[in-house]
C-alpha cells in the first residue's frame, strides 16, 4: 500500500510537471494581455513599462523557468488584474466551488442510486421506464440550457428559490459554507441540481446496469438457494458488488463536476473558481488561468489516487501493490 502510494505520487509529480509545460506555453499563445492593462491612448513607453512590469519582456522559456521556480515555493504568479497572488485568489474562491460540487455529488448519489436500483430490479415497471427516459434527457440536454430553465421555472415563475449568488454563509469546522444556513441552502439548491443532472443520469445508468447484471449472477441464485431474504440479497450481495464500479466512476467524475461548474457558476453567478476562471480568460489574466489549470490537474491526480485506494478497500480482489506501474 505505501509503496503503491509513493509510486503513484511520483507519477502524479510527473503528470503535473508535464501539464505545467502544456498549460504555460498554451496560455502564452493566445492574446496579448498588455493591451488589456494599458489605457488605449498610452504611448509606446507606457506599453513597454507595462510589459516589463508583467515580466513579459523576457523570453518565454525564461518566463517558464521563473514560473517553475515560483511554483516550487508555492507561488504561481500574481494576477495581472488584481495584483494579488493567483493562488490566493483561487483558494479564496475554492470553497464555494467545492461545496457546489459536493452538493451536486451528494444529490447524484442520493437520487441516482435509489432510482437506478429500482429500475434495475423492476425493469418493466412504468416508473422504471420513466426514470430511464429521464436519464436520457439528463445526458443529452445541455447544462446551460437546463440551468436557464431551472431559473425560469423555480426563480422567475414560481419564485420559490433564489437564482443568483451564494446567500448567507456560516462556518462549519472553520470553513465558510452556504450549507450552514437555510438561506445558503436555498441558494445552492438550484445550481447544485443543475450541476448534478448529468451525474444523476450517470448514477442511474451505472446502478441499473450493475443491478441487472448482478441479479443474473450465480451468486444471487446461490444466495436464494440458501434461503437468504430478498432484502439481504439486494442490499448485501448485490449492492456490495455494484458499489465498486459506482463509487469508482462517481469518484472519478468529481473532477469533472468541478470542471463543469464553470458553466453552472456562470449561469447562477456563483462566486466560485469557475466564475473566476471565466473572468480571468476574458481579461487575459494569464497567471490566474495557469494557476486554475494547475490546481485542476492536482485535483484530478488526487481524486484518482483516492478512488484507487477506495476501490481497493471495497473490492477485496484488488491488491494495490500487485498492480504494475
Amino acid at each position: 500500500m505505501t509503496v503503491f502510494v509513493i509510486r503513484r505520487l511520483m507519477q502524479a509529480f510527473f503528470v503535473v510537471f508535464l501539464m505545467s509545460v502544456i498549460v504555460f506555453f498554451g496560455v502564452n499563445i493566445v492574446g496579448d494581455p498588455v493591451y488589456m492593462f494599458v489605457s488605449p491612448d498610452a504611448d509606446q513607453a507606457d506599453i513597454e513599462a507595462a510589459i516589463r512590469r508583467l515580466g513579459l519582456d523576457r523570453p518565454i522559456w525564461e518566463q517558464y523557468f521563473l514560473f517553475l521556480k515560483g511554483a516550487a515555493q508555492g507561488n504561481l504568479g500574481d494576477s495581472f488584474v488584481f495584483g494579488e497572488p493567483a493562488l490566493k485568489l483561487i483558494l479564496h474562491h475554492m470553497p464555494a466551488t467545492l461545496e457546489l460540487a459536493f452538493s451536486a455529488l451528494f444529490l447524484s448519489i442520493v437520487i441516482g442510486i435509489p432510482l437506478g436500483l429500482f429500475s434495475g430490479l423492476y425493469p418493466d415497471n412504468p416508473v422504471s421506464k420513466g426514470v430511464m427516459a429521464g436519464s436520457i434527457l439528463g445526458f443529452s440536454l445541455p447544462t446551460f440550457w437546463v440551468g436557464l430553465m431551472l431559473i425560469l421555472l423555480f426563480a422567475v415563475e414560481l419564485g420559490w428559490l433564489p437564482s443568483t449568488g451564494r446567500g448567507d454563509t456560516a462556518s462549519i469546522f472553520g470553513i465558510q459554507t452556504s450549507l450552514a444556513t437555510w438561506d445558503g441552502i436555498r441558494h445552492i439548491f438550484l445550481p447544485a441540481l443543475n450541476l448534478s443532472l448529468l451525474k444523476i443520469s450517470l448514477a442511474i445508468r451505472l446502478t441499473r446496469a450493475g443491478v441487472r447484471e448482478a441479479m443474473g449472477q450465480d451468486y444471487v441464485k446461490y444466495a436464494r438457494a440458501k434461503g437468504v431474504s430478498t432484502s439481504r440479497i439486494i442490499f448485501v450481495h448485490v449492492m456490495k458488488n455494484i458499489m465498486i464500479p459506482v463509487v469508482t466512476v462517481m469518484g472519478l467524475e468529481f473532477g469533472s463536476l468541478i470542471g463543469f461548474s464553470v458553466v453552472t457558476e456562470t449561469i447562477f453567478a456563483w462566486p466560485g473558481m469557475g466564475k473566476l476562471l471565466i473572468d480571468a480568460i476574458l481579461q487575459l489574466d494569464r497567471p490566474v488561468v495557469v494557476a486554475y489549470l494547475m490546481i485542476m490537474v492536482l485535483f484530478f491526480v488526487l481524486i484518482n489516487l483516492v478512488v484507487d485506494i477506495l476501490y481497493s478497500i471495497l473490492d477485496p480482489r484488488v491488491r494495490l501493490q500487485d498492480q504494475g506501474a
Binding site: 449472477q217 450465480d218 451468486y219 441464485k221 446461490y222 450481495h237 458488488n241 465498486i244 477485496p316 480482489r317
Partner: peptide, 11 residues
Amino acid sequence: FQDPMMTLNPV
C-alpha cells in the same frame, strides 16, 4: 452449484 468460482459472492 457447478462453479464454486461463480457461486460464492466475490466481495
